[in-house]
Design a protein around this nucleic acid. Structure first.
Ligand SMILES: [Zn+2]
Ligand SMILES: [Zn+2]
Ligand SMILES: [Zn+2]
Ligand SMILES: [Zn+2]
Lengths: 144, 144
DNA sequence: GGATAAGTGTTATTATTTATCAGTCAACTC
DNA sequence: GAGTTGACTGATAAATAATAACACTTATCC
């Protein structure tokens, strides 16, 4: 059983627990994202999906992504309009990304300290944070 | 002399110092952004610009924004695809945003601590940060 | 004043995302 | 198990966001 299959199974169980339906389509899209090295755009994802779901349309992908985003199975990179599978959807983590502009690798980090720093900075001016977007572009260790 | 005029003048001098041309078009666009409460999308900006530059097209706005972004006179909010004027372009600051989802206000903060925290987190996994995107959505002090 | 580069006008196209309505399928009730 | 309900998907269209390409104009430099 591959690593991807393991993640997909974990996702299915996670969804069942939440009373959400992990349909074939959602599973396929999530699996495609897991296969991906880095992040992938919606239309690139659509092209991959079409290989097994020839009827897929943009709305198909975006609706499925909406579901996956809602349940935290996938994250969106706002700075690149791309999507990346999450491997730790079951541990309620803060999310930050390191995006290598050289090789495209996307590394997800979960720094509680970073999250708290932003929350506190905001709080100090009376701002209550609901959602953070933290993305760093630069050069990964392998590319240096 | 209004506050906006002061900022525009500061911007002109800043550009001259850098050997960049602060043309009428660039000035108009920057002034429009300064007038704005929060952030504004490129096409909304285009509509405003058309009031005095009826020939303006999307490319007009995007090119002008490219210039303003390059020289730090304007920032882009990646999470909303919107643009906001910077008032401190001459002080080489880190940039983070607090975006109120209730009233649309965009507050720019310049936390060196926050920037350093992210830089260090990245460094600890061998990642060299070139550019940060830090945006918090939530509720501002006035809206609470 | 002519060469050069930067800036702008103009048209078209691509990329990204959402809206809408109709049909299908799963779960729940009786 | 048939019927009802709501969630999911198919399909078409449109809105929003961004870029490409080429011609023309203007400023700068020598
Ligand atoms: Zn994650
Ligand atoms: Zn890399
Ligand atoms: Zn700024
Ligand atoms: Zn507010």
């Amino acid at each position: 059983m591959t690593n991807i299959d393991l993640n997909v199974n974990k996702a299915r169980i996670f969804c069942e627990k939440k009373g959400a339906r992990f349909t074939t389509l959602r599973e396929k899209v999530y699996a495609l994202l897991l296969q991906q090295d880095g992040a992938i755009g919606a239309y690139e994802l659509l092209d991959s999906l079409k290989l097994t779901e020839s009827a897929a349309k943009p709305a198909t992908v975006y609706r499925t992504l909406d579901f996956l985003l809602e349940f935290g199975l996938v994250h969106k990179l706002e700075s690149t309009n791309a999507f990346v599978a999450c491997h730790h959807f079951d541990c309620n983590h803060p999310v930050q990304f390191l995006i290598c502009d050289s090789c495209g690798e996307v590394q997800e980090i979960q720094s509680l300290g970073l999250k708290d720093t932003l929350d506190k900075q905001a709080m100090s001016v009376g701002f209550k944070v609901a959602k953070q977007t933290i993305e760093a572009h630069g050069t990964c260790a392998a590319c240096k």
